[in-house]
Amino acid sequence: MAAVASEAERAVLEEEFKWLLREEVHAVLKQLKDVLKEASRRFTLSATGPEGQTRQENFKLGSSATDQVKGVLTLQGDALAQADINLRLPKHNQVLHCTFREDKQWKLQQIQDARNHVGQALYLLNSRDQTYQFKSGAEVTKLMDAVMLQLTRARNRLTTPAAMTLPEVASSSLMKMFTPPLPGDVFANFYINLSKLCLIVYQLHLLQPNLNKNFKPAGSSVLHNPGSMFEINNQKFEVSHVHKVECVVPWLNDTLVFFTIALQLCQQLKDKISVFSSYWNFKPY
């Protein structure tokens, strides 16, 4: 493209750009709102039934007779309302059966945060209704950047589980939710990874004092591998076995698709805005 357009070309491009700000931007904003309303609706439908009653979804963990960890999880919106788990751990030479205490639910902060970010993105879009007149491309770009930031944070909360140290897992309030309590040498943790609800169970063994010279405490991680070491209450432990089971939550997959579509719409609008600047040797916006 020429750095400096002719006067006639400039006049045509200015009219096209005004039309873009006046008409096409609002058309894209409507598309974005519709997509994000669908994403928001997935979070809402996961929590309430057709008559506003509390809705619960059951998901099965484990798929074969050889699974060391099996069970059923009951998801209610952004919380695990119940967990019914069987642990087949060779060290204990029995199947351990545990459930959540009836007075407890486990909040899945990742889902709650993702829902809040979607709500914030919708708030930003709703602040510019159909009657609002954008005055510059920079104003549109700024709005798209703000919306994309919220959508990226929402997506990241579902795709990037929090890393934790093993002492943090041990001291988590999740460990106090099971009845009967988990054995002292068994830790558990739940998290969301993409559209999957995951359960990690760690089996531990106590390190003897004569092994202290080889002790190397593990740092933060989503999943700690066998051989990971840590210290708690002046005792040193090593992870001997790790068992991971997971189940797909279909509506979480839907929300991730909506995030991708919305981010693409934002980027396409930003690209259209930026194209006009290449027609001039100065930015017309």
Results as ranks from 00 to 15, higher is better:
Asn212His: 04
Met148Ile: 03
Ser171Ala: 14
Phe215Pro: 02
Gln150Gly: 00
Glu15Thr: 14
Lys91Asn: 12
Val95Gln: 07
Tyr202Asp: 04
Val72Glu: 00
Cys266Ser: 12
Asn86Gly: 09
Pro209Gln: 07
Pro181Glu: 07
Asn214Pro: 04
Thr48Arg: 13
His92Pro: 06
Lys142Phe: 07
Met175Ile: 04
Leu204Val: 06
Lys18Cys: 06
Gln235Cys: 04
Arg55Thr: 02
Leu80His: 03
Ser221His: 14
Met229Val: 04
Leu21Ser: 05
Ala146Asp: 10
Ala138Gln: 14
Thr179Val: 06
Asp103Arg: 10
Gln31Leu: 12
Ala47Arg: 11
Gly52Tyr: 05
Val69Ser: 09
Ser173Arg: 14
Lys272Phe: 05
Arg41Ala: 12
Glu14Ile: 03
Leu32Pro: 00
Lys91Ala: 15
Lys18Asp: 13
Ala154Gln: 03
Gln94Arg: 15
Arg101Phe: 12
Ala81His: 07
Gln56Tyr: 07
Leu29Gly: 00
Thr159Ala: 04
Asp34Trp: 15
Ala79Leu: 09
Leu211Ile: 02
Glu168Arg: 05
Thr141Pro: 04
Lys37Gly: 11
Glu16Pro: 03
Gln94Ile: 14
Leu182Asn: 01
Leu207Asp: 01
Leu13Pro: 02
Ser171Met: 09
Glu57Tyr: 10
Ser173His: 15
Leu108Val: 08
Met144Pro: 01
Gln264Arg: 08
Ile261Asp: 01
Leu182Gln: 01
Arg153Thr: 05
Ser221Asp: 13
Leu122Ser: 05
Glu102Phe: 14
Ala27Pro: 00
Ile111Asn: 01
Ala154Asp: 07
Val186Gln: 01
Asn126Arg: 09
Ser220Gly: 11
Thr152Pro: 04
Lys60Tyr: 11
Lys283Trp: 11
His117Gln: 15
Arg88Met: 11
Thr141Ser: 13
Val239Met: 02
His205Asn: 13
Ala81Tyr: 06
Ala170Gly: 02
Leu61Pro: 00
Leu122Arg: 08
Leu143Met: 12
Met144Tyr: 07
Asn225His: 10
Pro209His: 09
Asp145Arg: 07
Cys247Phe: 03
Ile192Trp: 01
Ala163Tyr: 08
Trp251Tyr: 11
Lys70Asp: 01
Ala3Trp: 03
Phe59Gly: 03
Lys60Ser: 07
Phe215Ser: 03
Gln31Trp: 03
Asp113Pro: 08
Glu238Asn: 06
Gln68Arg: 15
Val28Arg: 02
Cys198Ile: 14
Val95Arg: 02
His241Ala: 06
Pro180Gly: 09
Gln105Cys: 11
